[in-house]
Structure formats: C-alpha cells, structure tokens
C-alpha cells in the first residue's frame, strides 16, 4: 500500500491539480506544501495531526469538518489566532503555529492571568 499522504494518480480524477511547491514554517520548522491548497492539507501531507490544544482540558484537536464550519483546526497563522486552516490557502513563507487555548497572543494579559490562576 502507498503510505504517502498525497494521491499521485487517482483512478477517476487522474493526477491532482496542485499549485507550485512553496515553503512555510510550522512551529518554526520549514516545511513544503502546494501553493493555494488549504494550510491544513499541507500539514496533513507533512504528517502533522495536532493543530491546537483546547483551553479548558488542553486536549489536542485537528481537522474535523475540513470545510470551515467546526473551527477545530484553528491555528495561529502569521501571528493571527483562530485561523481556520482548512479553508485558508497556503502561501509562500507562511508562519503557522500550534494554537494553545483560544487567544494565545503573547501580549494577551487577561488570558495569561487566567491560565496562571491569578484572576
């Protein structure tokens, strides 16, 4: 069985139409994907399953609906949190990071204090 995540030739659809190869970073690590495909697909092809950890239970989440409805696959993309990676096209040089909780912005004081139990 073919173990790679990308379908090379499909019996009905033939060779998938994909954009050019571009590089992006995932938690600082350089990866490559196809331009224009959803960020989540590039991550899946690279074997990344965990997109975020939840706020309350700190549990991992990944792709669930893949059409932008469930919001389980949100990550921090180019510094902006809560980006639905399943409907966000991959672009050259994107900075994609695992999201922790709801608003992981470094400067978000309230969130940090809540996490520390100071409020």
């Amino acid at each position: 069985m073919d173990t790679s995540e990308r379908i090379a030739v499909h019996p009905i659809l033939g060779v998938p139409e994909k954009g050019r190869q571009v590089q992006f970073t995932y938690n600082g690590k350089t990866m490559s994907g196809c331009e224009g495909e959803p960020v989540a697909m590039a991550l899946k092809a690279a074997g990344v399953m965990v997109h975020r950890y939840t706020k309350k239970r700190h549990e991992p989440r990944g792709i669930f609906c893949a059409i932008g409805r469930c919001t389980d696959c949100v990550m921090v993309v180019d510094g902006v949190p809560n980006i639905r990676t399943c409907v966000t096209p991959l672009a050259e040089g994107m900075d994609v990071r695992t999201q922790d909780g709801v608003t992981p912005l470094a400067g978000d004081k309230a969130d940090k204090e809540e996490a520390d139990g100071t409020i």
Binding site: F64, C65, R69, C70, T71, D72, V74, N82
Partner: peptide, 8 residues
C-alpha cells in the same frame, strides 16, 4: 455558543 455556533 462557541466558535462553530452549535453546528456540531
């Protein structure tokens, strides 16, 4: 009442 607005 979260991000998905109860769709799931």
């Amino acid at each position: 009442m979260g991000l998905c607005q109860g769709q799931t």
